[in-house]
Design a protein around this nucleic acid. Structure first.
Lengths: 246, 246
DNA sequence: ACTAAAACAATTGTTGACAATTAACTAAAA
DNA sequence: TTTTAGTTAATTGTCAACAATTGTTTTAGT
């Protein structure tokens, strides 16, 4: 019975692809949603995605559930999946929750700041500054996003990181929307005092600054969305909310 | 033609039956873990659970993933699942994160308090008081848990509720542990000022009280766990990964 | 006795087929 | 014309078989 092993798929494993297929599929889907390939409200079916990805429905199903957990996709039983579209209410919830988590992270980081953490913080902040001086808006949005991801990481609080990662996708969508209301310079002025407070270990001030550094823009976005919802009562068929929108 | 429909499930669909099988299985598993049927660290295999529940492995697999998301189970690729055990570090992360979310909830509820919300809040708090006077410790723990669930619900902040629900299972485990250090009366004194602040709309005070009402007990539990870990050095356990950053 | 390769066992990863559910459609009855 | 019962199409829900991965045990060679 010593039959030779048969490998039907030797090719696709070209890189350090140690992740399971459903996790990889989830990454691809998340990226597609974030870059606007799938518009908010668009319907997604397991079968067509499975076919276009060359994977089975069961695998795609698992990846879709991952994104449902992240709030990027909504699922109705026996009806299907669709890309989540941000209502004004959703936007308000997201930025208030985000403020809460980021304020906690800022305090934590300020309390446990070290020389090494200061360096990594500076690196992330420098990228924001460089992106702003480069004048490319999408780069500034991305650098801003990465900065906050770095802060969460530097807290070394795994549970906090997990919850922040859970809303990260939505935050990213939100950020490209809120970018409408910001001048590029704003990306620097809203962060510099916060960074300084964390660098110098002023925990209370860092917490307060982080809790409020999105509030003004968030409320403006909520107001804008609310008006848009009032004008078109049924549907929000605005431009795709991806990084490409500017 | 008019053939009678064959209803294999003639009984009026109870609401529970309308949920998908994997969600029901997840509920059963969660309850089993919370009630100690499965001990922390115990290994869970898809096959044996599938057999004991009378469901297929795929269905159980989906339910296990749900619990992994909730942080009640840890998964190692190709190795298996096991019930998460709380290290002192985990306990610290959990109670600090919990404080953060509950402080936000308390502020929100205080800011939006209404007559109806006051009633529901009173009901939940009364159950705590009654449980304490009854002298049954497990009832007090349960009522405490339900009180905080009610507070989260009354905020009408869906995203906050979602994130709180995510840690609810762990909070429950944590609470039965921390109960070691509490007299029954503590369940009243740690809550009464908080409830009052929310009832009267004093948002700032409610936030501050909520943020600290677990701190003392939490730190005592962390200390206790740390000592226990020091005594038995055999915790060469793998790094638990419930909610991990990407 | 020690090391390295090879077989083995246990478990999850992946897939395609089948069942159940819902909504849209059609046609008959009021 | 409106309502209602049946039919159908589309989609997810569930399942059982097979493949891949890892850790363990055995075996061969030195």
């Amino acid at each position: 019975m010593a039959r030779p092993k048969l490998n039907r798929k030797p090719a696709p494993q070209m890189e350090v692809t140690r992740r399971s297929l459903d996790a990889q599929a989830a990454d691809k889907l998340r990226d597609a949603i974030l870059t606007g390939v799938f518009a908010p409200g668009e319907k997604l079916t397991e079968e067509v995605i499975a076919e276009s990805f060359g994977l089975s429905r069961g695998t795609i199903r698992a990846s879709l559930r991952l994104l449902v957990h992240e709030g990027l996709i909504v699922q109705e039983p026996y009806r299907g999946y669709s890309v989540r579209s941000l209502t004004s209410r959703d936007a308000w919830e997201l930025f208030t929750l985000r403020n809460t988590l980021e304020a906690f992270a800022a305090r934590l980081l300020a309390e446990t700041i070290t020389e090494e953490k200061r360096d990594r913080l500076d690196q992330a902040y420098d990228k924001v500054v460089k992106a702003v001086t480069s004048g490319v808006r999408t780069r500034a949005v991305e650098a801003d996003f990465q900065l906050h991801l770095t802060i969460a990481e530097l807290t070394e609080h795994a549970a906090l990181q997990g919850h922040y990662a859970l809303i990260a996708g939505q935050v990213r969508l939100y950020q490209s929307l809120v970018s409408k209301f910001l001048s590029l310079q704003d990306y620097i002025v809203t962060h510099e005092t916060l960074i300084l407070a964390m660098r110098e270990g002023r925990a209370g001030e860092a917490e307060r600054l982080a809790a409020q550094h999105n509030t003004a823009d968030g409320e403006r976005l909520v107001e804008w969305l609310r008006e848009a919802e009032g004008r078109s009562e049924d549907h929000i068929r605005d431009r795709p909310v991806g990084l490409s929108a500017s």
